[in-house]
Structure formats: C-alpha cells, structure tokens
Computed example of a mutant assay.
Amino acid sequence: MLKLSIKNETNKLRSVILGRADSNGPTPMESEAYDPKSLEHIRAGTYPKEVDMVQEIDAFQRVLKKYDVEVLRPKRVENMNQIFTRDIGFVVDNIFVKANILPDRADEWQAIQDIVARIDPKNVIVPPEEVHIEGGDVLVWNDYLLIGTYTGTDYSDYNTARTNTAAITFMQDLFPNKKVKAFDLVKSMTDARANALHLDCCFQPVGIDKAIIYEGGFRNPEEYQFLVDLFGLENLFQITADEMYQMYSNVFSISPEVVVSEMQFTRLNHWLRAQGLHVEEIPYHEIGKQEGLLRCSTLPLYRD
C-alpha cells in the first residue's frame, strides 16, 4: 500500500506523481485552448514543442531524485497532455481526493489508476458530480485548507473557473478539523495577465513561514489581507501582474530548505536565497506557456 501524508506545502517530500510530456499531441486548435495563455501562444505560433517539454520535465525529475524522492509517473496516453498531474487529484493529510476536472481530460485520471489502486480504498474520496475542484486550488498549510474558487454568477462561462462554491462546503465537511478558507479569484478567458487560473497561480507558501503572493489575483481585498495577516507582510514576496503571468508563484518545495524554481525567475530566486533557501534552478519556460509550472506538474503523496 502507498502511504499518504500531506500536512503542508513544504515539508520534506518523499513521494510524488510527476507529469509527462512524451506524447503530448499536436498543437491544439484555438477552440481547444483551456486558458488564455495557451491561446496566446497558439495564435502566435509559439506553443511549446514536445521535445522541449520532455527535456524540462526530465530536468525536474533529476532534481527530485537528487533529493531521494520517489517519483511515480502516469501511464502514457497517446496524444494527450499529461503534464499537469496537480489538476487530477490531491492529498490532504492521509486522504486522496479525486479532482472533478474538465470532462475532456478524463483520460488523465485513468492514466494514474495503477497508482491509485495502491492506496487503501477507504482513503480515496470521489466527490459528487456537482463539486468542481482541482488540486491547483487546494493548498494545505498546517491547520488551514486554503482553497481558490470563483463566486461569480457567470461561473459556467469560464473554462478558467475550476473550483466552485460547492467544493468549499464539500471540503469543510470532509475535513472538519481543518480551518477551510476560500479565496475568490480573478478570472479571464482572454487576458492571461488578468487570470488566476488556480490559487497556486497567485499565492504559494515556501520555507517555514514565507510565501509568494500576487495581490491582484484576489477579487476580495479582505481575503488577500487574511494571507498578509497569516504570514506577515515582511514574509511575503509580492509579484507583479507580469510575474504572475510568468508563473512566479508556481515553484515547488522539496523541503522547508529547498525550492525548485524556473531559472529565468531572477528576482524571485534572489529573494528566496536571501531568506536562506537553497534554490534548484531548472528550465521550465516552455511548459509555462500553458499557464502551469512546477507545482502544477506534481501530485505529492507523502511529505514527512
């Protein structure tokens, strides 16, 4: 049996499902784009090439293995984007929750069935159909469950709205011992600089008491202020709209001391080192063109 334990976003990582890009399929049509950043690159003819994305994920895997992390991979599905495993499920404490993802992506869930089958079935939860939730919107931070959502009445008009208010109630009921806090996020189908696709696209803890944050990603100033109060303004790295677009907050912690980051994130990486963190820099720019980065590519199963 696979053991599960996720208490927060930064404890020492032992086991993770890492996405794959080795049969990513052709460049999507404009009508097939799930997010405005992918759409932008489809239109510009700069959508990432499979060979480049494979190299980037391989670099990520080498860093994970350097720190003795068990790296599990989905089964290969021909001509399917399987990079962003964070979207298809997530672990809170010792519970694995299946995400209710966009219907077009159901085969991604099938590709990790061999792994899910190794988890005690009583610890695998499948939410009801009306509960929309993806792992990028769920951050575990000790006593807190921080969850991104979108509360607009036009929710169904947005492909970029992935977690609904029904999911907040569901998670409160599933984890009664957690303090569940919802964050209403800014969404756009046309402007990637005005679209927080998931909570981890505009906020993420690092180290023991630090975090990366984009104030403009939150529709409600009080919810942004909640995070300022929780972490302390002096412990927050404030990013710009362009840095959110580049996915600055979507780095990935291997431990409280080690963060994997994109090599072009010069300003962020300098700040992380100034906080005493060791930064493992890798190329991940091409994958970032699909509005997802390092955290999006991982589904952690066990942290100490």
Rank of each mutant, 00 (worst) to 15 (best):
S188Y: 07
D157V: 04
T169W: 02
L139R: 02
H198Q: 13
T165W: 08
L185W: 04
V140A: 13
R162C: 13
L102D: 12
Y214I: 01
Q113Y: 09
V92A: 06
I88C: 04
A166R: 03
P127R: 07
V126Q: 11
M80Y: 04
N81F: 11
G148L: 06
E134Y: 05
I213V: 03
F170N: 07
D173Q: 12
N177F: 12
A117N: 13
C202K: 00
I133N: 05
K122I: 15
A167R: 01
L197Y: 05
F175M: 04
G207S: 02
V77L: 05
T160M: 08
L139S: 06
R118G: 15
Y155S: 14
N79A: 15
K179R: 09
L199F: 06
A99M: 02
V91W: 02
T190N: 05
F90L: 08
H132N: 14
V92Q: 04
L102R: 07
E134K: 06
P128H: 10
D87P: 02
V126K: 07
V131G: 01
E134F: 09
V92F: 03
N81I: 15
F84N: 01
T165N: 12
V131T: 09
K98I: 14
Y144S: 11
P103L: 06
I213K: 00
E78T: 11
T163A: 14
H132I: 13
A194C: 12
V126I: 14
Y158M: 08
G207F: 00
L145C: 09
C202E: 01
F183L: 00
T153E: 15
K98G: 09
R105A: 13
D104F: 10
R105M: 04
I208K: 05
T151A: 14
I112A: 00
Q204C: 12
T190I: 12
H198A: 15
A182I: 06
D184Y: 01
A106Y: 05
N195S: 15
I168T: 02
A111L: 07
E130T: 02
M171R: 06
D154S: 07
K178M: 07
A192R: 02
L197F: 04
K181E: 12
C201D: 12
P121L: 15
F96P: 07
H132G: 08
D184G: 03
D191N: 13
D143Q: 11
T85L: 04
P103Q: 03
K98P: 05
L174P: 03
F96N: 14
P205F: 02
N94M: 08
E108T: 00
A166D: 08
N177V: 09
G135S: 06
V91E: 08
R105F: 00
F203L: 00
N142K: 09
F203D: 01
A167V: 01
Q110I: 08
L185I: 02
T190D: 11
M189I: 09
I119L: 14
L199T: 06
I88P: 00
V138A: 12
N79I: 06
N81C: 13
N79Q: 13
Y214A: 15
K187H: 01
D104R: 04
A167D: 00
T153N: 14
V140Y: 02
A182Y: 04
I83F: 08
I213R: 00
V206C: 02
G89W: 02
G135A: 11
H132V: 12
N100E: 14
